[in-house]
């Protein structure tokens, strides 16, 4: 029976590959048919037409789009996403350089999001319609309606400028030596090299932007967990648990929590994947040296290979998040693990 589940995961992965392929075609074509001539941008507005034409040929932009795509795909299979027409660097290397900074921010945000959502959701659901719930619901309402970049500005103003509890921007304070690059994830690298000063310093810097990113999805996830808790609290399996005199905390954190959190896991996973998109503006507000600034620059400059790479990386992160969520849900919910879904 369990093999039915692995078949399901394999099938899901195949779908995912297929949709990533579709996504790549879409961005590839879109990036090329939208107005703006990359060759002209590279050459500069004053350059004579022959130069522009030569650049166009160098970039293969004179060939039909399907041919361009096949050439591109071939190099992708060799791990090469092409060159940025702007920085003249390999896009692959750019991704490797900038992405970990963003992932770090997102991972910290995700932890805040999930832990916060669980605490708030459980408290709110357990004390439904009482004061803890009222506070959480009010917070959730605000949390959901305020976008991440607005949180970013508010938190920066209040805790950065006014109260001065946290740094206003950047990744490390002046005078703190960043760790050497091992994994590219600075927090991890600091730990590996035993550089706790850098570790603490970065945590201190990362907190506000991560919190800004986390608040919205945290509020949404807390609401879903709360709804599950409230819904299940009225079910007979909870009445049965109570009828046997099981302790409240066992009911709350085991028998009520688990069935209530399962529906939220899917949403939480998608929210985490969406953090990368939301991170664009937040990274700029906090001057965080991440992927987003790179992505925005690529869009503005019509840096074709960079645009496609940025979109694909986001697509891959979504896909990976999806698969992780599926596995996690199946791990938590035996009904899914044992019964083949779909067919």
């Amino acid at each position: 029976m369990a093999s039915a589940f692995s078949r399901y995961i394999i099938k899901r992965s195949a779908y995912t590959l297929f949709s990533l392929f579709g996504l790549s075609v879409l961005v590839f074509v879109l990036a090329r048919v939208l107005p703006g001539d990359p060759a002209r941008i590279v050459a500069g507005p004053q350059a004579p037409e022959e130069v522009v034409e030569r650049i166009r040929q160098q970039l293969n932009l004179d060939k039909p789009i399907p041919v361009q795509y096949i050439l591109w795909l071939k190099s992708v299979f060799h791990g090469d996403l092409g060159y940025s027409i702007y920085t003249r660097h390999s896009v692959t290397l750019d991704v490797i350089k900038y992405l970990p900074n963003s992932l770090e921010l997102i991972i910290v945000a995700a932890i805040i999001q999930v832990v916060g959502a669980i605490i708030l959701g459980v408290a709110s659901g357990w004390w439904a319609y009482r004061w803890p719930d009222n506070i959480v619901r009010a917070f959730a309402y605000i949390g959901i309606s305020v976008p991440a970049f607005v949180w970013a500005i508010i938190l920066q103003l209040v805790f950065g400028w006014w109260l001065g509890w946290f740094p206003v921007q950047g990744m490390f304070s002046e005078g703190v030596t960043p760790p050497p690059r091992i994994t590219g994830f600075h927090l991890l690298d600091s730990l590996i090299t035993g550089n706790f000063v850098a570790f603490k310093d970065e945590l201190w810097h990362i907190f506000l932007p991560a919190l800004a990113l986390a608040l919205g999805p945290m509020a949404q996830d807390a609401r879903i967990i709360r709804a599950g808790m409230v819904d299940n609290a009225g079910k007979d399996f909870i009445a049965l648990a109570k009828s046997h005199g099981l302790p409240d905390r066992l009911i709350m954190f085991k028998y009520l929590f688990k069935p209530s959190v399962i529906p939220a896991v899917t949403v939480m996973g998608m929210d985490i994947a969406a953090l990368l998109g939301n991170a664009f503006l937040v990274e700029i507000i906090y001057n965080w040296p991440g992927f987003s600034a790179y992505g925005i620059a690529a869009m503005l400059r019509k840096d074709l290979n960079a645009i496609v790479a940025v979109v694909l990386v986001i697509g891959v992160i979504y896909a990976v998040a999806n698969i992780i969520v599926d596995i996690l849900v199946a791990y938590l919910d035996p009904r899914i693990r044992y019964l083949e879904r779909g067919e």
Binding site: A239, L240, A241, K258, I262, D333
Partner: peptide, 10 residues
Amino acid sequence: DPTSALNPVF
């Protein structure tokens, strides 16, 4: 109802 009286995920 024994179906709803047992916790589905344990």
